[in-house]
Write a protein that binds this DNA or RNA. Structure first.
Lengths: 173, 173
DNA sequence: ATTTTAGGTTGCAAAATGAAATTTAGGATG
DNA sequence: CATCCTAAATTTCATTTTGCAACCTAAAAT
């Protein structure tokens, strides 16, 4: 495991975006609502029926998602009772995180073959696993990763020649 | 996006692994504990200090993570008061999901340059963005994705626009 | 004008959360 | 041995968050 210990005490100011992401998406229903949205659900009653979520919670979560800029709320012109919730760019970019979670659940849960499946529009083949990639796109696993402080980063093109004791992989120990 | 509406009502049996994943990781502190674990935190008091989390909640969450097989709990031989919490394979494989969330937070949060950063052990360059990839490794965005039911899947080889090259090395970000 | 529909609010009980004190078990010290 | 110390939990109790059910309101529909 990496030598460097990330100071994640948010008391003295946090320098990791994870808590930030969790503030927006860390609540129970947030990802479920997001999934429904990715599946083309746009209206309150639709969400409510699909998720069997309490109306007040749904209301509250939708508002929060809108506040966080993940969904956009638009009162529809043709029927002004209707409100349409739409994923923003910011919301759409949560897809990798959602798929990563889902794939993990699929792999480690009791053999749940999730349906439907996301396929590439070009070849209609299911997507591959969401992976971490090196700067050049090579997929790499946790064994090939280390934590580094920004200040210690090597400029591109100066790969390290030899490995010393600071190079313990993330998962070691 | 998707044409098909995923029936996510878990009342009549669910066929998506996302709720399953959320059951294990959907609570507020779960990802924060996971992050600390990835950073080399192994002991109760360490977690407690780093996260400033209430002790009872920490105790409860660690138990749950152990129950879910995400962390292993080992009473240490040399001092049997001490308990060591270690990420299992299952836990380690949550890294893509965690990084995806973190990167999302980094991109959309108020310009938080997260530190430390994960780097490739080989070239010490920071990792690229976590992306969704096609079956052949090509990274694809949400615009190129559709939902399909398993039954409708094309057998591999009958795809329209095949790209059978290995990983397209796309310079990330 | 009444009814229906979409999208919410309330009110209240149950559950989750968190801070602080207490407990349990194992080690260290005199 | 008797005492103190430490790591990890658990208990207690006040605060928050959740969830169900019922109610509200504006805009269509009839």
């Amino acid at each position: 495991m990496g030598k460097l210990r990330e100071p994640l005490n948010m008391l003295y100011g946090d320098n990791c975006a994870l808590p930030l992401a969790l503030e927006a998406m860390g609540e129970r229903w947030s990802f479920m609502i997001l999934r429904a949205a990715f599946n083309g659900v746009h209206h309150f009653e639709e969400f409510q029926q699909e998720l069997s979520i309490a109306r007040n919670i749904l209301s509250n979560r939708l508002s929060k998602l809108v506040d966080h800029g993940i969904m956009a709320r638009e009162v529809m012109a043709e029927d002004r009772r209707k409100v349409r919730y739409e994923l923003t760019e910011k919301g759409l970019e949560l897809l990798p995180a959602m798929i990563a979670l889902r794939q993990w659940g699929e792999k480690w849960g009791a053999g749940v073959p999730s349906t439907p499946v996301l396929v590439d529009v070009l070849d209609e083949q299911p997507i591959g696993p969401v992976t971490i990639t090196a700067h050049d796109g090579r997929p790499i696993g946790y064994k090939e990763l280390v934590w580094k402080h920004r200040s210690e980063l090597q400029p591109l093109g100066q790969a390290r020649a030899r490995t010393d004791e600071r190079m313990a992989p993330v998962a070691a120990e």
